[in-house]
Nucleic acid binder design. Structure first.
Length: 493
RNA sequence: GGCGUCUUGGCCGAGUGGCUAGGCAAAGGUCUGCAAAACCUUGUACAGCGGUUCGAAUCCGCUAGACGCCUCCA
């Protein structure tokens, strides 16, 4: 019997606006697609948060025993600078500015993206397809949509006919918009367009002479519209209908709306059962934007080299910080928030380390099985990581009581507690036990142990001037001694 | 201008018709040669105004503010 049979999940579906019991199309299997990054610059921290949310969801589904195919694409072509005909491929523009090949830009930032995600301890997706690797599939989709009468060609470009589509199927069901509002509220176009209606979106764009990235097609040498790649790749790897489609809140409209329309136009049924949207990450109460300086690169968190933070934070601390908020809430990235999370994170890690030295005795004074289920309940309820973290701290409190000798635990419960806490902290939340690595058996550790021993001798001789000197000077060097019941330990953070 | 989300104690951040979220900080205590660390205990908050209800932070309305989308964006 698989765990998922005992742990029913409910997911907030953006499409219905409410939590729904999760039931995969094929029993035991989950297909999940998440819109990946456009690799034309360094990964944005907000990207990291979105992908982290789905990383945890991926991990949890796997933990429950589902066979998950997690597809997260790389957008390496196709974005338009703007809606007008003068639009040009975003990656090509950046390449010209930097005088290098477009694929060089793509390569550089793809590597950066993977590095950052690795640092944050992300699991790689099952498939990471690229837009440029699926041009043929995209062209086939366009042909199909044209055949179905829902797209038209003008001057070598192909557009999706939103109004015609809307005659039989509602355009805007995901973002709760209706076409009439869209018509009334469309901003004035700059420049002329080939579109019949401003709501129409490009499936294929004819390349201007200056375009470097271009592919032959029945309509022109050009490049695919942005929304199309996700439809092409999700269909190819997950089927015409799959379980979960995720992405950032900002992709809801128009991107995901267009994906639905494209898929419906091709296959005449909805592509996705559960739409999930991760909310935005803001910084100091405001949107992150390079232009205003309200911005931080992921790497700067690890180095501390950014005016918005006062120190460097380990990736796990940043990860823990983000997971203390629910994925559907706006999260405010602040130095104070990070500082608070850091303390809590190390307290959690310390407790987990202490767990190894706990010996069982008598009957448990804490209901471990009930606690374990409450951890599952938290995750089952739309992947509520903050509630899970709260539960973990209940365990921390209990572990500390065990250490102090003011609580008992049976042998069986101790085993369960260890297994559960490791599963949730390391396998599911994806945190890394940083303290254990830091104070491991390296050269520094040996030296500090010696000083601790010398200090112990000084204290035994009541030479407190010496013992305090050792303690204080180590503190200045960034090494903090912690006197406990069973001797002295140290931390370097 | 349109659409949507949100506003919780000193800070962060869950929850959601009646029952302690949790973390950080703070106060008191235990431990300690003194500290630090650690641990224990404590805190009664839900933007404002009105309404529904036996009862609302939780539902409805209005007001104010924040954020997002409407244009490339996770």
């Amino acid at each position: 019997m698989q765990l998922y049979e005992q742990q029913p999940i409910s997911i907030y579906n953006s499409l219905s606006g409410q939590k729904e019991a999760f039931k995969p199309i094929n029993d035991g299997y989950v297909g999940m697609y998440v819109c990946g990054p456009t690799v034309y610059s360094n990964v944005h921290l907000g990207n990291v948060r979105t992908f982290m949310s789905f990383d945890v969801i991926f991990r949890y589904l796997k933990h429950l025993g589902y066979k998950v195919r997690y597809v997260r694409n790389i957008t390496d072509a196709g974005h338009l600078e703007n809606d007008a005909d003068v639009g040009e491929d975003r990656i090509a523009k950046k390449a010209r500015l930097e005088q290098i090949e477009p694929m060089e830009v793509v390569q550089r930032y793809t590597v950066d993206f993977h590095n950052i995600l690795n640092t944050f301890n992300f699991l790689p997706p099952s498939i990471e397809p690229t837009a440029t690797g699926h041009i043929i599939e995209q062209i086939e989709l366009i042909k199909k949509i044209i055949d179905n009468g829902l797209a038209y060609e003008v001057n070598g470009s192909v557009y999706f006919d939103v109004l015609k589509y809307n005659e039989t199927k509602p355009y805007g069901i995901l973002s709760k918009r209706n076409v009439e509002d869209l018509i009334h509220n469309t901003r004035a176009l700059d420049g002329q367009t080939d579109k019949k209606n401003p709501q129409d979106f490009a499936l294929w764009k004819k390349a201007e002479p200056q375009h470097i990235m271009r592919w032959p097609s029945p309509w022109s040498d050009g490049f695919p519209g942005w929304h199309l790649e996700c439809t092409a790749m999700s269909t190819k790897y997950l089927g015409e209908q799959f379980d979960i489609h995720g992405g950032g809140m900002d992709l809801k409209f128009p991107h995901h709306e267009c994906e639905i329309a494209q898929a419906e136009a091709c296959n005449n049924h909805a592509p996705v059962n559960y739409w999930m949207h991760a909310n935005m990450l803001i910084m100091n109460g405001k949107k992150m934007a390079k232009s205003t300086g309200n911005y931080i690169l992921p790497n700067e968190i690890f180095s501390g080299d950014n005016p918005h933070i006062t120190k460097a934070y380990s990736p796990s601390v940043a990860r823990f910080f983000m997971l203390q908020a629910h994925y559907r809430s706006v999260l405010d990235f602040t130095n104070n928030g990070l500082l608070a999370s850091e303390k809590g994170f190390y307290r959690l890690m310390d407790a987990i380390n202490v767990l190894d030295s706990i010996t069982p005795s008598g009957n448990s004074t804490f209901n471990v099985l009930e606690w374990k289920q409450s951890c599952y309940d938290a995750m089952n309820d739309d992947f509520n990581t903050p509630i899970l973290v709260a539960n973990l701290f209940e365990a921390v409190k209990f572990i500390n009581q065990l250490k102090e000798g003011s609580a008992n635990i049976s042998e069986e419960d101790l085993k369960t507690l260890k297994e559960t806490i490791h599963a949730f902290v390391f396998d599911i939340l994806g945190l890394v036990n940083v303290t254990a690595e830091d104070s491991g058996t390296d050269k520094l550790s040996g030296a500090v142990e010696l000083l601790i021993k010398l200090r112990q001798e000084a204290r035994a001789n009541k030479d407190f001037a010496m013992s305090d000197k050792i303690r204080d000077e180590l503190a200045e060097a960034g090494i903090q001694l912690k006197d406990g019941k069973d001797g002295t330990t140290f931390t370097t953070n």
